[in-house]
């Protein structure tokens, strides 16, 4: 009898240890970025978020305002483009599982997930930047939207499929129309899954460098030049500044990485608070 309890204990310990090992790298990343980035943010105070980067020879590093503004603009506009498109596509494929379009959408979405995001940037570069002859924040938004679409779609489809059939049948039995069933029952019950998909897609978009290299391009001489001017983004700035040997710019890169991390955590917390669990 003791044996069974012992085996159970040992097994539990092993599982817990393995789980800790598995998530250790995440904590290592969080701790290291905080250790390097937080002091920089504190040292520079509010100006870290409101100034443009200073020259390498300046006494203080300046701030990351262009990167913040660019990331905010591009992430928001990309979300506004991607979420309606992808969610409607997901509703369509759940409602018409055997339609030709559904199969096409599924295949494209799956392959879009596999495509290196730099290729998405190149696509927008060829379609939009080359013909107009200019890098723009909006081109960056479009590239990020394409990055987001398959994520939103995949999570939305999963969430919508998992809505219990009995609910839907009950709704029909009450005499609701198809559109009513979809928007008042299916989407509503699946909202947590939908929100999770959006949150994951937004964080993915926020952290992308590659699709922005040839679209938004980067510009740090003003905070934000408008949608038709090149724009900076947090990961782009971190990527370019961490490679230099100058303390000012390396400080901005570490502080920027820390800011990005905080934005991630905030986003997930907000998504959790706003969208409460559905209890069956």
């Amino acid at each position: 009898m003791d044996d069974r309890f012992l085996v159970d204990r040992v097994f539990t310990v092993i599982v817990v240890v393995i789980a800790i090992i598995a998530i250790l790298p995440i904590f290592h990343i969080i701790a290291y970025i905080t250790w390097r980035g937080l002091p920089i943010v504190i040292d520079n105070g509010l100006s870290f978020f409101t100034d443009v980067p200073a020259a390498v020879v300046a006494e203080k590093p300046g701030g990351i305002a262009p990167a913040l503004a660019g990331t905010a603009f591009m992430t928001i506009t990309a979300t506004l483009i991607a979420v309606p498109l992808a969610t409607l596509a997901a509703i369509f494929s759940v409602e018409y599982p055997n339609h030709v379009l559904t199969k096409a959408v599924r295949v494209t979405s799956r392959s879009l997930l596999e495509v290196a995001t730099i290729l998405i940037g190149m696509l927008i570069f060829v379609l939009l930047v080359l013909p107009t002859g200019r890098f723009t924040a909006l081109a960056g938004s479009l590239a990020l939207a394409i990055v987001m679409i398959p994520y939103v779609y995949t999570y939305a489809e999963l969430a919508l499929i998992s809505v219990p059939k009995t609910y839907i049948e009950a709704a029909y039995a009450l005499g609701m129309k198809r559109a009513q069933v979809i928007f008042y029952v299916t989407v509503r019950v699946a909202r947590r899954g939908l929100a999770r998909g959006i949150a994951i897609a937004v964080t993915k978009a926020m952290g992308e460098t590659a699709p922005l290299l040839f679209t938004a391009f980067g510009a740090r001489s003003v905070i934000f030049g408008g949608p038709f001017e090149p724009a900076d983004a947090l990961p782009l700035m971190v990527f370019q500044f961490i490679q230099t040997g100058y303390d000012n710019w390396r400080a901005l890169a570490w502080g920027g990485a820390f800011t990005l991390l905080v934005l991630y955590l905030l986003l997930f917390i907000i998504a959790r608070i706003l969208v409460k669990e559905v209890r069956y």
């Binding site: 905010a72 928001i76 509503r188 905070i223 934000f224």
Partner: peptide, 30 residues
Amino acid sequence: RGASKTILAGLVIAVLVVAVGAWLILGRAP
């Protein structure tokens, strides 16, 4: 049902306002 609808609508409006506002203040005004 009503509550979450309001929250959702509020969120969308807030996001739009922030986006447009940010652009006006940061980009255009100066």
